[in-house]
Design a binder for these strands. Sequence first.
DNA 1: AGAATTTATTTTATAATATAACAAATTTGG
DNA 2: CCAAATTTGTTATATTATAAAATAAATTCT
Lengths: 128, 128
Amino acid sequence: MRKQAATRQSDVLDVLNQHDKPMTAYAILDQMKVGEPGLAAPTIYRTLAALTEQGRAHKLESINAFVPCRCAHETSVPVLAICEECLAVEEHDGAQLLPQLTALSQKSAFEPTRHIVEIHGRCQTCAT
Amino acid sequence: MRKQAATRQSDVLDVLNQHDKPMTAYAILDQMKVGEPGLAAPTIYRTLAALTEQGRAHKLESINAFVPCRCAHETSVPVLAICEECLAVEEHDGAQLLPQLTALSQKSAFEPTRHIVEIHGRCQTCAT
DNA sequence: AGAATTTATTTTATAATATAACAAATTTGG
DNA sequence: CCAAATTTGTTATATTATAAAATAAATTCT
């Protein structure tokens, strides 16, 4: 049995939205296998690739996990702050960083296609 | 047979310095196994953890690979530009980004401990 | 509309990355 | 020098990700 990509994508996004913490691809897979036992890893990875490409989800590169995008997705530079204690993620718009990032790239005539900005630390709740 | 951590660290750093592209942990392992066949993955990962903690190497979180630090290592924000075509990495000092990153963290009283900034794109040589 | 072709999706299998748990050696403080 | 603590090494396994083959849907052409 086969599902349309768009359907898969909203299914995966639903799962992400039902959790308030970032999920690994395999955590998503386990969740979705409840209702659809045949499902396997590549389906999840392909779907996540599409979602991140569209800006509807973000990958946290430093912890190999995913969150749904909750910013206006036209943002050129998503900034993801990850609490190392509770793993909560806050998403900020980093558009203001763009001029400086661009300046750095231009130092060596580097042509940027994607900016990755993540902050590790402690969220308000966990910081005593 | 056993080696002091400091010696391991400079051995690993030597290997990183002998290559002009980022190396995965297993690429380093393979290289070092030539002279020391018994060597295993955890030794490499432990050594890399120490080196990155000391700021003598950087992990590229978005590609799971490592480069030696070539900046002044007191830099608070290393910026790593990765060419998606040839994989060359340029290291910049992103100290100038710190005020804005701090401002973003303060929006939600987040206490940052580490900033990760990576740029994907094409280096001067590969960009036509 | 129906067969042929193409494209997209799923499945199976496996590769690449990382760490847990245990064992052995070295160092350190008495 | 001996015992405890620590560091390093080894084995085994967990986690993350993707390649390749198989299958299903969609498209195109007549």
